[in-house]
Amino acid sequence: MMSCYLPQRAEILEVIDETPNIKTFVLKPERKFEFKPGQFVELTVAGVGEAPFAIASSPFQEQLEITIMRTFDPSLGRYGQVTSAIHQMKEGQVVGIRGPYGNSYPVEASIGKDVLIVGGGIGLSTLRSFLLTLLQDRKKYGRIVLFYGARTPADLAFRREYESWKQRGAEVHITVDVGTAGWTGNVGVVTTLFDRVKLDFKREIAVVCGPPIMIRFTVEKLLQVGYRPENIYVSLERKMRCGIGKCAHCNIGHYYVCKDGPIFSYQQVKDIPEWW
């Protein structure tokens, strides 16, 4: 007898500090674990609970990586239980994972096209899976441009990897909302990068993930500069409780983010008032 709610065991092989409140957990699932970029897992910290997290690694990597931000809920006056608990965990300990769930980024549709990836904060985690997938087969695609914004330089996730992404053929543009001493890069929200970087895309695809407000303004900007709604993809966040389209927590209109998403073309969701 099986149950669709049973997690499998995954050992933490390594914990990488990305920022003061973001860590990457390198996991080794007990059983074979295949996924597509953009999918997510339901992750269990024993005795604490289960929560959905995007996969940050590409399917071509041997290890599974999940990058998690410890979040504070001001309305409850406390940190998220699962994110806090996993941030305390060390290599050698185990977590549970269920999944992978959800659809994936438009990898096939990107072939022969220029791809713009726009990320905000921890949103870069799932986009990294897509970026690394594209870089794996670099020559299949046109320009690959990453716009990434975080609050301060200290909040930039995956800082250690930007150089290697550039070397592998991505154009990486970083900005912070607020600069700090020693920061010589761009300052301004992520949409300001559109004024700084020349994009002459003809058959372009744009993929966006970040905080709700960032997604909304980025989509507006993309439409303004001429992207078509069907070529803009957003990776959305909702409370995916079961992950398998049953509990009904994550609906946006008639879609379930866990099953029909988390990646939607803007064309799909633009007429649903609550998309964000």
Partner: peptide
């Protein structure tokens, strides 16, 4: 440990809350 399932009414405020207390 025990994993439980319970009815959660969709009209309650907490129902769709996501990370950092954002409520769609």
């Amino acid at each position: 440990f025990v994993r439980m399932r319970f009815w959660e009414p969709c009209i309650l405020e907490r129902y769709q809350k996501v990370a950092a207390g954002v409520n769609p």
